[in-house]
Design a protein around this nucleic acid. Structure first.
Lengths: 340, 340
DNA sequence: CTGAAAGCGCTTACAG
DNA sequence: CTGAAAGCGCTTACAG
């Protein structure tokens, strides 16, 4: 077996032309006569020749690949939000001829291990506080778009983000509006900026109406202990009857699924005796529960698509700086009711 | 601004060493004195130098990237199965230091447009019949693992697959065992080999007991018409009362969610008046419905992990050929009942 | 432990 | 329309 794969040189030689010509036949960057084109193509087919993407990338300094830096979550799966986000990113990339390099590799601290990845730009999910990678990408000359806001704030970096403070505020406003004061908040993990922002917003909505916030109990997710649905399920089992809440805010619709199951088991009527609202809105989950979930639409897919679009723009003109904050939308369905 | 990014040459020059030395400092492939190492690292930091992955890949003919070829689905999202599969692939890749190149780009037919991708191997999801890509990867010398079986069968290609025939058989056996004969089968799209295989298996289970198969109604999903949950929902609305089924087989748990919702709206008691079984088992969906879904566990994540592991083996020894067929497991929960 | 030089497989001015 | 040659930024025998 001819173990080795044919290169442009092999084709050029066998076809009796220069490699520049073979290159042009494949890249179509300059016109080649039909005669020659056909001969080259035939030889290429014979030899099983295909242009080498890596070599091409090195020469033109372009890979047509976008990187997606995922937070390292050892063995937990992608959340619904992440999945939808990726969907959005993927569609836009695909539409524009880009592929996606999914990077879930853990960070190392050995400065010798960083490298300029084979990508034309990267989207980074959930940057950490003082994230050193942001500065690094700048040095590497690689366009970067964050999903989530930089912390501390930095006007020179591109990002898309939910307005999580506003999200919390709206939820609070809604719940207060229908009479709930005693609320169980099943929040995200405490080290996430979204957890902080949402709780702040929620508190603000109380403050705005001069209502003390101490009737709100906040729990935080710990992903090493159990999965999202389990988090919702157990939280209810462990607190119902002990804490006096009439409404629960679930961080995600998965969490809400668990809450609903616990409610069923404990024979708690939702929404009559307990209202439930989810802070994310998975199209195929939230609408298929009983009762259908009232939820906040974080537009995860839209967020991803926006990030991709900004990145694509920036890959063509690196001077561009865009920030985009998406307002959350409350989707009222059936899982909350007025407290009488 | 120094628009351009520093290269190994810049570092070598400024540090007064050869580029081979700089290379060795970063790759650690040959020992360099502490003195020199430190100087080089300092200069590198000064200059903001990071090794270029593409150049390195070209030189060593290795990218440490695995490709994942996804079926082109214009604008529909990833299915639960795909997501779990990807999760499995990702974890194994990550564990072994590989990143993942997600490729959802549509196929073209222009022979001039193919290229050897910047990957060390690829996992291909749902190969089509007579898929031309299989032969192409062979020519390119790129290790390939299929998820789903090659059609026509080919002993020289690696793949992992569910035993879909057996899956259909088991479901039939189970349903027959609890007295159901009149069945509505909400099958996958008709051009998928899984749809064919599962229906065959189901038919076999009837044949095995000498029961005619004509009491089974088979519908096929058409993704351009609606999403999965909608497929389940509408199918029930449109057929209940007109077709005499006592049990429905839903292609996925998403489809089953729609079926359950329709049942609720029509006031059909599940499982008393209608049994429901799903052909896939999303951990966080199937267990959170009411009633909890009886389902077939396709082990999507396991399948993905296996595919990745075989690929990783094959990338190190391309002569390896592994096939792995995973048996389906019936997970009996609450959504089916004996027909009295 | 370190250097000089060829090589990885392409592209692209430049010249004709 | 086509060719010769330099270049993209690394690595790796070979030699010392």
């Amino acid at each position: 077996m001819g173990q080795t794969v044919a290169t442009i040189d092999d084709v050029a030689k066998k076809a009796g032309v220069s490699k520049g010509t073979v290159s042009s036949v494949f890249s179509k960057k300059r016109p080649i006569s039909r005669q020659v084109t056909e001969r080259v193509l035939e030889v290429a087919k014979d030899l099983g020749y295909f242009p080498n993407h890596v070599a091409r990338s090195l020469a033109i300094k372009k890979t047509m690949i976008a990187g997606l830096k995922m937070p390292v979550s050892k063995d937990s799966n992608m959340s619904g939000f992440e999945i939808q986000m990726i969907n959005g990113v993927m569609k836009e990339c695909s539409r524009n001829g880009y592929r996606l390099l999914l990077d879930t590799l853990p960070e190392h601290d050995d400065p010798t291990q960083f490298s300029i990845d084979p990508v034309d730009g990267v989207i980074m999910l959930n940057p950490r506080k003082q994230d050193p990678r942001i500065e690094r990408y700048k040095q590497m000359g690689i366009p970067l778009v964050l999903v989530g806001r930089p912390d501390p704030m930095d006007d020179t970096v591109c990002y898309v983000d939910n307005n999580n403070r506003d999200l919390g505020f709206k939820v609070g406003e809604y719940l207060l509006g229908i009479g709930h004061r005693d609320i169980l908040f099943l929040n995200a993990a405490s080290d996430m900026t979204v957890a902080y922002d949402r709780e702040s917003g929620l508190a603000e909505s109380f403050a705005a109406q001069g209502i003390p916030f101490d009737t709100v109990q906040v729990l935080h997710y710990r992903q090493y202990r159990y999965n999202a649905a389990e988090y919702g399920y157990r939280s209810i089992l462990e607190t119902f009857g002990k804490l006096p809440y009439t409404a629960v805010i679930a961080d995600t619709d998965r969490v809400a699924l668990g809450v609903l199951r616990a409610a069923r088991e404990l024979n708690i009527d939702v929404p009559e005796r307990m209202s439930v609202i989810a802070l994310s809105n998975d199209a195929t989950v939230a609408q298929e529960t009983t009762p259908r979930l009232t939820a906040v639409d974080q537009s995860a897919e839209f967020l991803g698509a926006e990030a991709a679009n900004i990145l694509i723009e920036k890959m063509n003109d690196s001077s561009i700086v865009h920030q985009r904050v998406i307002e959350a939308k409350l989707v009222i369905r059936e899982s909350c009711s007025r407290l009488s």
